[in-house]
């Protein structure tokens, strides 16, 4: 049973996306990558559920074409 939520779950997606991109403003590419890594770790801890995290890792793997 898939536990990962793939339908829209963010109440104001455009607000979120703008905040996300804003957070990277002025960062070097390396600093951005490090920021992303920290962000993922924080979010992963919030989620906690290993099943969900496993499905998320799977979903993020680039679809093979």
């Amino acid at each position: 049973m898939a536990k990962l939520v793939t339908s829209l779950n963010i109440p104001a997606p455009d607000d979120f996306y703008e905040t996300l991109i804003r957070a990277h403003e002025g960062l070097s590419d390396e600093d951005s990558a490090a920021f992303n890594a920290r962000l993922i770790l924080v979010l992963a801890n919030h989620i906690g559920d290993p099943e969900v995290l496993g499905e998320a890792l799977e979903a993020a793997r680039k679809p093979s074409r």
């Binding site: 939520v5 793939t6 829209l8 979903a59």
Partner: peptide
């Protein structure tokens, strides 16, 4: 990339 398979990402395509 995600929008092809995951519905939530379609809402972010602008």
């Amino acid at each position: 990339d995600l929008a092809e398979t995951l519905p939530f990402a379609r809402s972010l395509v602008n």
